[in-house]
Amino acid sequence: MSRHNRMPKPRHAAIRAEIEGRILSGALRPGDRLPSEAELVAAHGVSRMTASRALADLVAAGLVVRRRKAGSFVAMPRAEEALFGIPDMRATIGPGRSHAVLKRTLRAAGAADRARLGPLPRGARVLALQVRHMAGATPHALEDRLINLDAVPEAAAEAFGAVPPGSWLLDRVPWTEAEHRIQALAADAAAAALLGIAPGAPCLVLDRISRCQGRPITAVRLTYPGDRHALTSRATATTRLREAPQAGMRKA
């Protein structure tokens, strides 16, 4: 069939494609308000039903949320993290992401550091980082990370301004195993202030240690507002929990 004989794209699909493109490009960020149905009708010369269908399709795709009496807004990303993997925060948050290093400390490994990372050589040093991850203008997660400088000495000179520390490690450092601990905890005052939630609000807290051939690389605690994160896992009838994939060299 020739290009000239193709059916034109339905108007609701064209409106959806335009808005979806702006969301995926980052021009519209999480939490941004979208035009109302009446505004879409005026802007595109379509019926109210067509405008409503375009917004409904965006809601069904998980890109938009509609709030009664408030309007339609770009959806906050709901991170889904594979239970036995180490995801990249760049992909987890997606368009509109940003991060800021709030604290950065180089120090000799103390008892608390060794408790988190595990056995370290005498005189070992660590880099402690606190990072806030944003989805648009909304706090997405708080990261408290220790990096074993005996395993990753180049991290001592890295500012992590352009790339968050987890992504930086994934790009450079091989890992062979990761250990996870998941809790539901109430936000303390300090975490609540940084995440923009009320003290005591429920949070999902993930503690992870990654190692390479038994050598600790990094320990991280990720604190998420409870309604913005999910953990997923898939298994078959023959899968055993203790046999979660660990073989081969991955990046931590």
Rank of each mutant, 00 (worst) to 15 (best):
G71K: 00
G31P: 12
R16E: 06
A115M: 13
E20F: 00
R53I: 02
R90A: 13
T92F: 02
A230W: 04
A159Y: 07
R68P: 09
W168G: 06
A14C: 06
Q130D: 15
P95R: 02
G85I: 00
R29T: 09
R250K: 10
L55W: 06
M134C: 00
S98E: 10
H99F: 02
P35C: 03
R122P: 12
A244W: 08
R48W: 06
L127A: 04
A112K: 07
V220K: 07
A13R: 15
G21K: 01
R16P: 09
A124G: 11
A162W: 04
A43H: 08
R48T: 13
L58F: 00
T232D: 03
L222D: 12
D227A: 14
L120T: 07
P199N: 07
R11K: 14
V173S: 07
S167D: 15
V64A: 00
L28N: 05
T236K: 13
V152S: 01
A14P: 10
V131D: 08
G45S: 11
L106V: 06
G85Y: 02
H12S: 10
G200V: 04
L170S: 11
D144T: 15
G62I: 02
R250D: 14
A247N: 09
G31H: 11
I147E: 04
S25T: 05
H140N: 05
A51E: 07
C212A: 14
E80L: 14
P121N: 01
R242Q: 11
R68E: 11
R240S: 07
W168F: 01
A230C: 04
R107Y: 02
M249G: 15
A82W: 01
P199D: 09
A137G: 05
A252D: 07
M134R: 02
G21Y: 04
R116Y: 08
E81P: 01
S25W: 08
I147T: 05
R221H: 10
M76R: 14
G45N: 05
H229R: 12
V152F: 02
L170D: 12
A155N: 01
A198Q: 11
L185N: 05
R33M: 07
